[in-house]
Design a protein around this nucleic acid. Sequence first.
DNA 1: AAACCTATATATAAAAC
DNA 2: TGTTTTATATATAGGTT
Lengths: 195, 195
Amino acid sequence: MGRGKVELKRIEDKSSRQVSFSKRRNGLMKKSYELSVLCEVDVALFIFSGKGRLYEFSTDESMTRILSSYQSYKQTEELTRVNIHEKLASEYTDLSTADELTEMIQRHLDEISLKKLEISGLNQLERELHNLLRVVRVRKTQLMMGVVKNLQKQEMELKKEKKMMMNEIMAAKLKEMDHDGDAGAHDAMTDVEIT
Amino acid sequence: MGRGKVELKRIEDKSSRQVSFSKRRNGLMKKSYELSVLCEVDVALFIFSGKGRLYEFSTDESMTRILSSYQSYKQTEELTRVNIHEKLASEYTDLSTADELTEMIQRHLDEISLKKLEISGLNQLERELHNLLRVVRVRKTQLMMGVVKNLQKQEMELKKEKKMMMNEIMAAKLKEMDHDGDAGAHDAMTDVEIT
DNA sequence: AAACCTATATATAAAAC
DNA sequence: TGTTTTATATATAGGTT
């Protein structure tokens, strides 16, 4: 599909691998989009580059959110369920600031980096990184849940305010009715709709 | 890309929409696979047909697992899944000593710890830790493979020595035979077994 | 890197089966 | 429905800038 034919195996040259990645990634996104429009289907595409960066296309935002947040959800669930990790959980759940988290991580890492990295050391390092990863994911979930909670709270308050305003309006209308007599009272009432 | 050019909108004719879906779906899967191989990246592609049928391609099994929890799309049985072997991150394979690895990790971590850990920062941190974990695992594999190689080498040397010893023994026996005459020579020979 | 340029490989729409 | 064919549209490798 170009001047030369390419074998189906890892492109060894780093530079042209990167170029190909960029081109083909865009091509894939475009085709995903076309498929979704032409055939009216939902498509979700996730591409994780070697560096762990995520490129994604999705016709359904909620699906994306569900799929990409599944991992952190699962980690959280696991964390609260398994006893072995209880201590870890309690140690981290009351971290309130990002700085505390950063410090904690650095502390762990300092410890780790002092050790000799033979196989047994690497095993430990692997475990530690795994735990850190879990902590980060839990923290992320917590933050996101916090955001959601705040939004919900705000919504509640707005609704409350709206209700109060409605009440005032109703009171005003009722006062008008006192002046105007009973005629038209019914219409005034049905205009008010509280949700 | 065919005899006629198609507008980018839902194909109204049900039949040709179905045909297009089938063709483009396969094309997308193929291209996803190619991208993953050529550029050595993880790709996950999910296509939900109008009827809720799922077509999926993924280089990463965990993605498949994510979907298996999707109750609404669970009727998926005929998944054409292509499994691809996990590959070593080539950028890291030339790390030769534990010290280099330690340094590299520390470098990454220093960078990370400088940043503010809001949600976006946590996302990056998650990626970084994931990468570090991968590096550690690759390094571990390398070390283990090194150990195996050494053991094989030692085994080879031991076998060589054994062979030489056997030869000496054979020579000694032959000498004995010269003294004793031909009787018993056959038995002596069959006792010697070179592996 | 990214953007552009072609020659060529590939994908696929429509036809035919 | 699926497969094969074929003409054409599209994607992209390997340049160049």
